[in-house]
Design a protein around this nucleic acid. Sequence first.
DNA 1: ATGTCC
Length: 379
Amino acid sequence: MGNFIRPLSDAVAYVASDDLWIESDATRQLLNTARLPGMTRVVGMPDLHPGRGYPVGAAFFSVNHFYPALVGNDIGCGMGLWQTSLQSRKVNLDKLEKRAQSYSDAAPPEWLEAALPPTLAAHPYAASLGSVGGGNHFAELQQVESVYDDEAVSALGINAKQLLLLAHSGSRGLGQQILRAHVERFSHSGLEEGSDAANDYLAQHNDALTFAVANRALIARRLLEHFREEGERLLDVNHNLVEPYVFNGQPGWLHRKGATPASCGPVVIPGSRGDYSYLVQPLNSGDALDSLAHGAGRKWMRTECKGRLSGKFSPAQLARTPLGSRVICRDRQLIYEEAPQAYKSIESVMECLTGAGLVKPLARLKPVLTLKTSGERSE
DNA sequence: ATGTCC
């Protein structure tokens, strides 16, 4: 067990194995971030990779102060899973792909007007609701490929003969605006627990969490309506946030920067669009700050993907994956940035999580159709 | 990551 949770210093550890790809830049960022005042425990997940100053795929515990800059711009980013009424064996992939081509990521204003409750309709960022966005966000139809625990899978409300819908998105422009306003006043320094500035940030942050959960629900609702299917939400968890937490009996603040909570029941650890995803039951993981990987994690920087892949693959070729799934993405740059080759293998990440005793796999999910329909971007 | 720098 201890072999998979590896110490880097007194306060810092990371979950890894000999077969896992971890960039030295990422562990360097992990150690740097651990030096912030008040930081007492830092754990890198197996999907750890370098970010802008702070690494992605890690959990950070601090006392007395917390750090909005560490949470980042996408406050409330997370994963929602829906059971759909689409029968797996009846799916015609060509037809499904064609139907998805006519889906636009931005929700029509008249649709939003009818769909939003009054509290959300009045929100300044209401126009973003129901849209997936860019970067690593996606909506994906998945087939239940293997079930390892029938009872747990049924208890979640899953019908293994019907497709699942996984939505990965966040608070869109809202979180961006909250971070920008914070950094303008306080740069990257922390906020003192209980101060007016801290309470003000937390109020905005919590609004963004609610907004992000609603966004994922509206994405699912729009997609299900588009395919004329029914659906039911099975789970929804945030992996970018800061929350009160007690570590070794000491109250403080847990920052999740791409770190899925292990304390909210079963969750999905998604692989890249060309790889499997795993539905898992989290196990006790106080050593890992009650956190899990939030995906496979990047292997290549965004800026190097097109150069490494465009000579070998056309965008049309990358719209079909090794597992037979289809990808809808109108942004030619993103097709390369989000290619399966740019990500670690999900098996290598899962080996670390199971090896460290952090999860029990419940089912393996195979991608069928991945949607990333954000608009054209030239270069 | 982003109602993304016009």
